[in-house]
Amino acid sequence: MTQEGFNPRILGFFCNWCCYAAADSAGVSRYQYPPNVRVIRVMCTGRIDTRFILEAFKCGADGVFTGG
């Protein structure tokens, strides 16, 4: 796989209280970042079960991002 043209699909699990909030404030500040992450909001990263991560890879995710 070459780096060029690699357009990964990333699934993000964002904690409602910190990472999700931070992503909101990045928006408010109009920071620009690559549009590759799709977000699932959770009330705490403690909610994340290993199965979710494996399932994400099974469903074609190139990466999983957990933010909490």
Binding site: R9, D49, E55, K58, C59, G60
Partner: peptide, 28 residues
């Protein structure tokens, strides 16, 4: 819920079923 070995615990609005459905919807 994420540590229960027999999946006996569910979280309102954030159930296993729901999060799995979101992951599947992510996959397309």
């Amino acid at each position: 819920a994420s540590h229960c070995p027999v999946l006996a615990i569910s979280m309102g609005g954030f159930t296993d079923e729901i999060i799995m459905a979101q992951i599947h919807a992510f996959g397309g």
